[in-house]
Amino acid sequence: MLKSLHLDPLKCTGCLQCEMACSYEKTGVVNPAKSRIKIFNFEAEGRKVPYTCTQCAEAWCMAACPVEAIKLDKGTGAKVVLEDTCVGCKVCTIACPFGTVNYMADVGKVQKCDLCGGDPACAKACPTGAITYIDADWTGLDKMRAWAEKANAAAL
């Protein structure tokens, strides 16, 4: 059964444990600036919104890559950047209409959420259950996809 990340803004307190866990998992240092999941903080409304790649079916990043450096992980459904192949052209960063592929100037490559190979560090670190990794049928994945679809407008 395919699993996916379920992000629930109502349960998010903005503690940033997920950003710290993600950056540590992926870069070996605790540095939220390098996290692939971001918490957006809307002070005025007291609203926190966790946000990362939905591994959308359209995979704009993957289609736009000129050197086949973004591949589908069939086990998790994640679109994964192959760092050895990425030339750092950044086309995926402007092709993704969700803004969830980002260029890292220090390494000259792009990075995005890869679901940690099926054991996402952000979900394990979240103390409030705002980020969970559960069966796709359960997660409201369809609702997330619906948002993605809306964003993708009439592309297909």
Binding site: K38, I94, C96, P97, F98, G99, A151
Partner: peptide
Amino acid sequence: RTDQVGVLRGLIQNR
């Protein structure tokens, strides 16, 4: 500016 610039496409494309 490189972080999340893709959303500019999203905003424009979704009108």
